[in-house]
Design a protein around this nucleic acid. Structure first.
Length: 966
RNA sequence: GCGGGGGUUGCCGAGUUGGGACAAAGGCGCAGGACUUAAGAUCCUGUCCCAUAGGGGUUCGUGGGUUCAAAUCCCACCCCCCGCACCA
């Protein structure tokens, strides 16, 4: 058999497409446009098969739309903005071996080139060129004339970003304010998730600070807590006797906090002045006054207190906090500790847990219960972490406050929490600070904390009106899959002000304050409009100096007088007009497709910025999202070596195999998986199709259709319909399965059913349709098949087959279904026979049985119950049943009703009336013989003489013949 | 914690909106047969359990419920995955 050389045909067709410029899109008012975009990939490395997954999905849609007669635009660009590229450059400068290894082994960069990556722009350019090749080789139908990249390296694009930010400023979408970040005091910079040695995924939360007045002093011991409601159960305050504390003036009050808290308070914009420093043990044995309840409680030592967490002061609620409980138990058990600090042991004698919350699971003394359950020995037991979270969770969800909580009694913990904190704050007895709940360590090894940056430039995403506008846009948009919509809604609501400038990395400068660069997500929100302009830039018609604010105002917003704008921007008026015309034709984006991760950021920004700047008719129309490609079940991870680049995949398997693997592997938000098995099966699949295609198309041509072609036509029609419906819903896997499996199975069955295969007109038409349907998925392969069918045109430009090209024939379908169900009955019996049969006698039900069936069906349709139907049949056929014994009637009626119910009345009646069973079976007997490997097939009517000797004949039912295998 | 998605037969994965033809599509894997010198590929058949005649039994995370009828509807619970702001 002839084998396909995928690489060869791919090279051939890619060249042909390029020469005939099929993917270059120009304005054409006779056609409806369809504009698709893909979020430009970031150029710090090679594009991988995850990118291929999302990209090929979009390519399928864009090609499908072209087949459907749309004028399709699919442009592409590159993302260079941000700190990652610069970060890699820095690591190369430092000769970081890990980075070099990844670039060399994973990205396949030659060693001598790696050192040139000290220049971040060189690196970005290198990857851009390499990745462009990879994407071209994948056969994505892109209009490459519109390519560009971000950052100041592309001055024209920078101009566009500048215009965007002037617009946002004008519109009042930018403000200045405070912004909290995770901060490394040593690096003096923000510590992002990826800059952490440990503590990934940890983010700041608000701690309540409760102020306990120190008895006989004007200073407050400031304790941090996440459970302000437990203040009613306080028995004492804990300090770490081995840690340093300070007394400091904080915004006019005297606070006592751990020494390491001072910097945090300063960095959270408080005015802090340290008065004195001392060891924690100094205050032990003194008393503080509790807010709200006015009790006096002692200050005691506890080693579990972390001076680096929040204020380093903890108030003790032993009943509900396992840590506090164990620390108290420890003290009572081990009075040596008290002695060491010159404390009288009686100080702890009176301290008993005070319960203030009740839950079903733990009752009123959760600490005691859980400590016992987990067998915890002392306050340094690591299990206390778990104990704490279990109690916390249970009480938060189901806890109710007891009598001793005054005005808060009876409240649920989750409500009381908020109320108590409010009341305390109102009375000046509490404050709050931001803190990381668990330690976050910077790459440099330093423990980080939360700093509030003042005077940040912020995008005002908290603005209600802006949110409303964004939601209005969303409500008019198509979202694929629809389940993702709720995510968008949530994120639009959730977004708070966004700090959009940085001081490091690559990017475009903030036009009115050039200390700052616009950060990576914020410079890439509305760039799809720039694709219209970049074509003119690339063709040499526009230079950065032409791209004035008025120019963009006119082209994108239609503002201003073209004559004046043209003069001031120093370009031809006609050129300006045609750019505007093109923009107006192509915009908005009809479909943007990306991985689901971008819902939370880029895609939501995309909506926000469009509604801020563009008129409503230019708002985005549709977004599709999909899952992430996994490798052998694992997420891709360069440093672990779990990575396959597009280039390598194509080299190994060929583009169409890579494409088909991607396209058939998942749909919706599911994550597809890339492994040898699935890739090989795609490879095999295409080869099989190729072989059978050669066989089919090479069959002897016949002028006339056979009866089976009626069925074929019906089936093809279904395949076309399902494929179209699926593609319209961006259910690409579903469409691919329909085309590459179901359609193929139809053809397989067709071949099996034909006695002698010939290329009938319908078969030929079906093959043509099939190839066009394959083209969006495996375009090179399809071009090849298209030629085999004797066509000279390019299949990628062909019209998609229409349903009406293939006539539906219900009767043909019914007949084939009838035959299939008979076949499966026979197979079933064959299976349980000891010996292989060689003959079959098939008995077709008598006329009278058909009459009864019709009678039953009509009664069923009238809505009669089973019993009524039986009665009526009994009456109607009382004296004239011959082929069926009178006493068997009820059972037989019930079976019929069951069948009618399952087939549906219409289908049943149709089959009953239109299929002449004996004739059809006789005409199919050669097929039965061959398919069942029998030597003799006999069709016998139940009411014929020949049937008389056979008991089995009586078991025949309409549409369900009985048979004897022997 | 908050928000989202999901648990289907050896595996992947349809089916769940609108309950009925569901022992549950399709693919993969596995078994048998055909073809072949042979292997691979391909084609046919089978693949929950029982059954020497088309039958019966038990299944769709767990436990209840509604219904003539539930993978599909309702309630409760368990488990898994993803995101949560300066990485893009």
């Amino acid at each position: 058999m002839q084998k396909l050389n995928f690489h060869e045909i791919e090279r051939k067709w890619q060249k042909t497409w390029e020469e005939s410029q099929v993917y270059n899109a120009e304005v054409d008012f006779t056609k409806e446009k369809f504009f698709v975009t893909f979020p430009f990939p970031y150029m710090s490395g090679s594009v991988h098969i995850g990118t291929a997954y999302t990209l090929t999905r979009l390519d399928v849609i864009s090609r499908f739309k072209r087949h459907m007669g749309y004028n399709v635009l699919f442009p592409f660009a590159w993302h260079w903005t941000g700190v990652t590229i610069a970060g890699v450059s820095d690591r190369i400068k430092r000769r970081d071996q890990q980075t070099i290894k990844i670039l060399r082994d994973i990205d396949g960069v030659p060693e001598e080139i790696i050192y040139k990556f000290e220049d971040p722009f060189f690196m970005a350019r290198y990857f851009t060129e390499n990745n462009r090749e990879a994407i071209k080789k994948l056969g994505i139908g892109i209009d490459w004339r519109r390519e560009f990249h971000t950052t100041s390296d592309d001055q024209c694009y920078s101009k566009y970003v500048e215009w965007q930010y002037f617009k946002l400023k004008e519109g009042g979408y930018i403000k200045r304010g405070k912004h909290p970040v995770v901060w490394c005091p040593r690096c003096k910079s923000v510590t992002g998730d990826h800059d952490r040695l440990s503590g990934e995924g940890v983010f700041p939360i608000i701690f309540n600070l409760v102020k306990y007045k120190l008895k006989d002093s004007d200073a407050f011991l400031v304790a941090a807590t996440l459970r302000p409601e437990t203040i009613f159960g306080i028995t004492n305050v804990w300090l770490n006797p081995n840690a340093d504390y300070v007394e400091a003036r904080v915004n006019g009050e005297k606070w006592i906090v751990s020494k390491s808290c001072v910097e945090k308070l300063k960095d959270q914009l408080r005015d802090v002045e340290v008065i004195s420093s001392f060891n924690g043990s100094l205050l032990l044995g003194k008393y503080v006054l509790t807010p709200l309840t006015g009790k006096e409680v002692p200050i005691l030592p506890a080693s579990f207190v972390d001076p680096d967490l929040a204020t380093g002061v903890v108030y003790s609620v032993p009943a509900h906090a396992p840590y506090d409980y164990m620390a108290l138990v420890d003290l009572k058990k081990n009075k040596e500790v008290l002695k060491k600090f010159n404390l009288d042991s009686s100080i702890v004698d009176g301290l008993q847990p005070i319960s203030l919350i009740k839950t079903e699971r733990f009752g009123i003394n959760p600490s005691e219960v859980i400590v016992k359950e987990l067998g915890i020995q002392n306050q340094n037991d690591p299990n206390l972490e778990r104990a704490t979270s279990e109690v916390y969770r249970e009480e938060f969800l189901h806890g109710v406050l007891l009598e001793n909580t005054g005005e808060f009694k009876g409240l649920l913990v989750k409500d009381a929490k908020v109320k108590v904190a409010e009341v305390l704050k109102e009375k000046g007895l509490a404050d709050e600070m931001l803190e990381l709940p668990t330690p976050v360590i910077c790459r440099c090894g330093t423990r980080t904390y939360v700093k509030i940056l003042p005077d940040q430039y912020l995008l005002d995403y908290s603005n209600k009106e802006w949110k409303e506008k964004a939601k209005r846009c969303l409500s008019k948009m198509r979202i694929f899959p629809e389940e993702a919509r709720i995510n968008f809604e949530w994120f639009i609501d959730w977004y708070d002000d966004w700090a959009f400038v940085r001081t490091s990395g690559l990017g475009t400068k903030l036009p009115w304050d050039d200390k700052y660069l616009i950060e990576t997500l914020s410079d890439s929100t509305i760039y799809m409009a720039y694709y219209i302009i970049s074509k003119f830039v690339n063709q040499g018609y526009l230079k950065s100096s032409n791209l004035t604010l008025e120019f963009f105002d006119y082209v994108i917003l239609g503002k201003g007088n073209p004559k004046d704008v043209a003069r001031r921007s120093n370009i031809e008026e006609s050129l300006l007009e045609s750019i505007r015309k093109e923009f107006d034709y192509w915009y908005p984006v009809d479909l943007r497709n990306s991985g689901k991760d971008l819902i939370a950021n880029h895609l939501t920004f995309y909506i926000f910025h469009h509604v801020a700047i563009f008129p409503e008719d230019k708002w985005p129309k549709g977004i599709a999202v999909n899952g992430f490609m996994k490798l052998g079940g694992q997420p891709m991870h360069k440093s672990k070596g779990i990575f396959v680049s597009i280039k390598d995949a194509i080299k190994k398997y060929g583009a169409d195999v890579v494409r088909l693997t991607c396209l058939i592997s998942a749909d919706g938000l599911d994550d597809p998986d890339w492994n040898d098995e699935v890739v090989n099966s795609a490879f095999q699949n295409l080869n099989n199709i190729y072989e059978s295609f050669l066989m089919l198309s090479g069959a002897k041509v016949s002028e006339n259709d056979t009866e089976l072609d009626l069925w074929l036509s019906s089936k093809v029609r279904e395949h076309i319909k399902t494929a179209i419906t699926s593609l319209n819903e961006v259910a690409i896997r579903k469409a691919a399965v329909e085309i590459f499996f179901n359609f193929r199975n139809t053809l397989k069955r067709y071949v099996r059913r034909r006695q002698e295969l010939t290329l009938t007109p319908t078969l030929k038409k079906a093959l043509n349709a099939w190839v066009v349907m394959m083209a969006p998925f495996t375009p090179h392969f399809a071009e090849e098949l298209w030629r085999i069918l004797g066509n000279n045109s390019l299949v990628v430009k062909e019209r998609w087959p229409r349903e009406e090209d293939f006539i539906e024939n219900k009767l043909a379908n019914l007949k084939e279904d009838y035959l299939d169900s008979l076949l499966s009955d026979i197979q079933n019996v064959k299976k349980i026979m000891k010996e292989k049969p060689s003959k079959i006698k098939i008995f077709v039900a008598s006329e009278q049985k058909r009459e009864i069936a019709r009678f039953v069906a009509l009664k069923f349709a009238e809505g009669k119950r089973d019993n009524e139907i039986i009665k009526e049949v009994m009456v109607a056929f009382k004296d004239r049943t011959s082929s069926i014994s009178y006493k068997d009637l009820p059972k037989s009626v019930l079976r019929l009703v069951e069948k009618i119910r399952s087939m549906g009345f219409d289908t049943f009646m149709n089959a009953l009336d239109k299929i002449t069973e004996d004739e059809f079976l006789i005409s199919s007997s050669n097929f039965l013989k061959k398919d069942l490997e029998l030597e003799e097939v006999k069709i016998i009517k139940e009411d014929s003489k020949e049937a008389a000797p056979y008991e089995k004949a009586k078991l025949s039912e309409p549409l369900r013949p009985s048979f004897i295998l022997e």
